[in-house]
Amino acid sequence: MGSWGFVLLAYGIVWLALVLYFLSLKNRMRKAGTKLSQLRSAGSPGKHEK
């Protein structure tokens, strides 16, 4: 493997990992947001019961 091979391997792994982490955060954010709004709409009558 030439010099550039090592350089591109390092940059490739790093940016792939960073992009994947960014996407996973966006995904977790979306899932948590959906769950929260579901709970809020379903939960409001429940609160009155108490």
């Binding site: 010099s3 550039w4 090592f6 350089v7 390092a10 940059y11 790093v14």
Partner: peptide
């Protein structure tokens, strides 16, 4: 060129 890895 390998030194470019230092920049990350």
């Amino acid at each position: 060129e390998v030194q470019r890895i230092m920049y990350i």
